Computed example of a mutant assay.
Amino acid sequence: MGKRRTYTEEFKRDAVELNISSDKNCTEIAEDLGINYNNLIRWRKKYRNNGELAFPGKGNQKLTSEKQKIKNLEDELKETKLERDILKKAVAIFSKKPK
């Protein structure tokens, strides 16, 4: 079984932009670049849906500043809820009367 090829964000973006601006069809461009036709189609779809944020690489999601702020607030809320639950348990433990 062959090694899985990885492509840089720049390569993917350039391939999609070439496909958009060229008179050639997807099959010809994929052959010229030495990539799988289905990869090019998938990259085009991601680029069309997400624009500049389409190819994050290594599973790291690129976020707009607004989405990043929302993510940070959600993380902070999650941590605050955890701390609150710990404090509730501590209060319950210390409020019990000794036997």
Rank of each mutant, 00 (worst) to 15 (best):
E79I: 12
R42M: 00
A15T: 10
L53A: 07
I41D: 01
N60T: 09
K81Q: 08
L33K: 15
T64D: 06
I35Q: 02
M1I: 15
K96V: 07
T80A: 15
D32L: 15
N19S: 07
E9V: 10
V16G: 05
N36S: 03
K69Q: 13
G59Q: 06
G51W: 06
G34H: 08
N39Q: 14
L87R: 15
S22I: 13
V16L: 02
N72H: 08
L40M: 04
E79P: 04
L63F: 09
W43Y: 05
F55Q: 13
A92Y: 04
E66H: 09
N36P: 02
I86G: 02
F55H: 09
P56C: 02
K67L: 10
K78G: 02
K99T: 01
N25S: 06
A90D: 00
N19C: 14
N49T: 04
R84T: 10
R5V: 13
E74Q: 12
G51L: 04
M1P: 13
K81I: 14
Y47T: 00
F11K: 04
K99L: 08
G51P: 06
S21D: 00
E9N: 15
E17F: 04
I20A: 12
K3G: 07
V91I: 00
N38D: 04
L18G: 06
P56M: 02
N36D: 02
T6F: 11
R5C: 03
L82H: 07
K97V: 15
N36H: 10
I86Y: 06
K46Q: 07
R48E: 00
K89N: 05
P98S: 09
N50P: 01
F55M: 08
R13A: 07
A54V: 11
E76S: 12
Y37T: 03
I86C: 04
R13F: 03
K24Y: 13
L73F: 05
C26M: 00
R48S: 10
K58W: 08
P98H: 09
E76P: 03
K67P: 01
P56G: 14
L82S: 09
L53W: 06
N25K: 09
K12A: 11
R84D: 05
E76A: 10
K62Q: 15
I86V: 14
T6P: 03
E74P: 01
R48A: 06
D14G: 05
